[in-house]
Structure formats: structure tokens, C-alpha cells
Nucleic acid binder design. Structure first.
Lengths: 210, 210
DNA sequence: CGACTACACTACACCGTGCAGTGTAGGAAA
DNA sequence: TTTCCTACACTGCACGGTGTAGTGTAGTCG
């Protein structure tokens, strides 16, 4: 066990590989059209191993969604800290929000992924028991809502219902971008930025303190 | 040479029944999880007839999406005329928009249907050639955009880009409602209205002339 | 009037295939 | 040894799609 980070590191690696392969295939081809064999092949893992790790195709989907959700929320938190911590002057707020949104849409392979996966869970695999949501703000919207509340407390925004504002912000930026362009490539596309900018402006016209 | 390689025209009633059954099942269970046998059973029609009318499951999906889209746009046009023609005073604008949105969400079995079906087409059945969209404003957003332009011309709204405003309006109302609650029952649910009301208010704070 | 034809539709059997899930033997590591 | 993993064969089944025999019905011709 010299330099080895044993302790099931191999296991964790395989687990991650499976998760990653499943995510890519589910997103590309849809849940039903993705065979477990294909997932196993892409993960360079035996099909049997997939079934040993996750017992079920459904469960695998759940795991993928949870993983992406966690990853997304971490990215959001970090980006939030990078772009919105030292509460900017009112003048810089628009730029800060645009930067934040574009970071999410670009850095992250695609926040679209999360939305698409949510659709998959809902549309394709019926109704599994809804997320655990223990207590913390462990959903992307709530992380954003927290920050809006802070901005409100700092007197930059006039936000009576931070959670609602967060949802509306997301809808105005990612929502319209997602609706207009296919859910696929979120970054890259040059048409995304203007849409996001306009979304932020609309949001600020509605929520900025006067 | 079997002269009948063409698809049947047949009785419109059966055709409609199949379309309707397919719509309900596709929405409830998803495209892949819906068997053609199930569609036929629900339509009280032979499975063979389904294949005679539409030659293919894919084609059936396309037909369903087109039908719903047409129906939706008709409803929107009518509702638009009913609620937003005699340009209301600035004071009544909020109520008018709320009424409009709720009419769409209620009267129509669910504008959610359209969105969900679009997802289905994209996510499940790969990429068929995108809609024909000949020239007219035959997409819901554009119908709404037209009306916003009219409201702007009347001095009630300050809308430089009507099409964008329409997309943002839809995102603020239906978008958030769809995200929060499952895509399923759009009407009925008492939680929809407050969401729509708040969406309209946000929209007006951003776009109303000052 | 009946006989015949054309057609829309059903009921049903059937084929091929893709796929979820399992059982197991065996190899490599620890 | 035990533990983990792979390779692979195999089952069971659901589903898309087709072919066909047969039924009801409307119209046409004699």
C-alpha cells in the first residue's frame, strides 16, 4: 500500500466511470434507448459489475441525477463565491450576474444537463420518490436564493421572496436560452450570451432597488 | 402491385381517437414506454388500423405533436382576442395578463402538454427535421409577441424586442410553474395561479412604461 | 329485389430483436 | 484463502411491425 490510495479507490474509480458513462449516454440517447450493455462497454466495465454496484437501471439513473445535481451545486456555490461575494456596487451588478450565469453555462459542461436529466427522471421513468432534500439548501435554486437574499439585505435588490426570484432568474436566463436553442450545447453557441444578458437586464429592471 | 401503399384517409373520427389516445399515453408514460398496442386499445381500434393510418410509431408521434401544436395556437389566438383586444387601461393590464395566462393553462388541457411533447420529440426520438414554420406567426411565442407589440404601440408597455419579451413572459409564467410542479396537471393545481400572478408582476415591473 | 364488388376494419397469430437481469466459472489481486 | 471483477451464456419478455383471414357495410349493376 505504498503510494497507493487504496481503500476502495479502485472501486470508487469504477463507480465514477459507470456514472460518467451512464450520464453521457442517457443525455445523448435518452434513458430507455440506452442499454446497460452500452453503459458497461463505455465504462470499460463488466455489465455484471454495473448490476453489482447499482442493482437496477432505475437506481443507476437516480444515482446519475444525484451526482450531476451535487456536482452542479458545488460549481454553483464556487461560482457564486467567485462572482458575487464582495457585493458589487449597484453599477456592477448586471455584469456580475451575467458573468455568473455565463460561468455556469460554460464552465459546467452544461447546466442544460441537469435540466435535461430532470426531464428524463420525470418523463421517462415515471415517479420515483422525490428527492430527500434533508434541510440544507442542496438544490441549485436555493443556493441562488440564499445569495439573492444576501443581496437584498445589502440593499442592492428588492426581493421579498428570494426563492421565487431565484426561479424566475433561472427561467429568464437559462430557461429562454434552453427553449430557443436545443437543450444540447449550452456553451459554445454565440447566441446564448445575448439571451442571458437580456434576461439579466429584465430581471434587474424588475428587482433592482429604486 | 398493391395499389394501397398510401396511408389511409379513413374516418376522421378514428383518426382523432388514435391521435387522442396516443397523446394521453405519450404524455402519461413517455414515448418509449407506450406500446402501440396500448394506443390501439385505448382508441378502441385495431392495432393494424393504427399502422394503416400512420405507418410508423415515429410518424404517429409527429402527428400528435403537430396536432397539439395546432390546437394550442388556435386556443392562444382565441384567448388573446378574448382577453387582450380592447387594450385595457394600464391599471387592468396585470389582471388581463393573468387571465390570459390562466386561461391558457386551464382551458387548454395543458400548455404543458406542448412543452412536454416537444421534449419528447427531442429527447426520445432523436432529431427529426425541425418544423416547417412557413412564414406566418404560427408558433405560440410569435402570436404573443404580436400582441405585445400592439400593447407597446398603445403605450402600455415598453418593449423594444417583442419576440424576446414574449419568450421571457412565457418563461416567467409557464416556465417556473412547469419547473416547480411536475409537467403533469397544469390546471387544477391551486399552486399554479400564485406562481403565474407573480410571474406577471415581475414581467410588468420590467416592461411597464413608467 | 338479389348478387357482386370495393373497402374499412378487426382479431389474431406470428416473427425478429433488443434488452433487463441472472447465474456461473474462472482469473487476478490481497 | 477470500474478494473483486470479467466473460459469457442464457432466460424471459415486451414490443415493433407484418400478414392474413374474416366481418360489416355501402354502393352498383343485372
Amino acid at each position: 500500500m505504498p503510494t497507493t490510495k487504496t481503500l476502495r479507490e479502485g472501486s470508487a474509480r469504477k463507480r465514477a466511470a459507470i456514472l460518467s458513462a451512464a450520464r453521457e449516454l442517457f443525455l445523448a440517447d435518452g434513458f430507455d434507448r440506452t442499454s446497460v450493455d452500452a453503459v458497461a462497454a463505455r465504462a470499460e466495465v463488466s455489465k455484471r459489475t454495473v448490476y453489482d454496484y447499482f442493482g437496477d437501471k432505475q437506481t443507476l439513473l437516480r444515482a446519475v441525477v444525484d451526482a450531476v445535481g451535487q456536482s452542479l451545486i458545488t460549481t454553483i456555490r464556487r461560482t457564486l463565491d467567485d462572482t458575487l461575494t464582495d457585493l458589487p456596487e449597484a453599477a456592477g451588478l448586471e455584469d456580475a450576474l451575467v458573468t455568473f450565469s455565463m460561468s455556469i453555462a460554460t464552465d459546467m459542461l452544461g447546466s442544460a444537463e441537469y435540466a435535461t436529466l430532470q426531464r428524463l427522471v420525470r418523463a421517462e421513468s415515471g415517479h420515483l420518490p422525490h428527492r430527500g432534500y434533508n434541510s440544507m439548501a442542496d438544490t441549485p435554486d436555493e443556493a441562488l436564493a440564499e445569495r439573492f437574499a444576501a443581496l437584498a439585505a445589502a440593499g442592492l435588490l428588492d426581493v421579498p421572496d428570494p426563492r421565487l426570484a431565484a426561479d424566475q432568474f433561472i427561467a429568464l436566463t437559462f430557461g429562454v436560452a434552453l427553449d430557443r436553442l436545443g437543450s444540447a450545447n449550452a456553451a459554445e453557441d454565440a447566441r446564448v450570451r445575448p439571451l442571458v444578458v437580456e434576461g439579466v437586464r429584465t430581471f434587474l429592471r424588475a428587482y433592482r432597488t429604486r
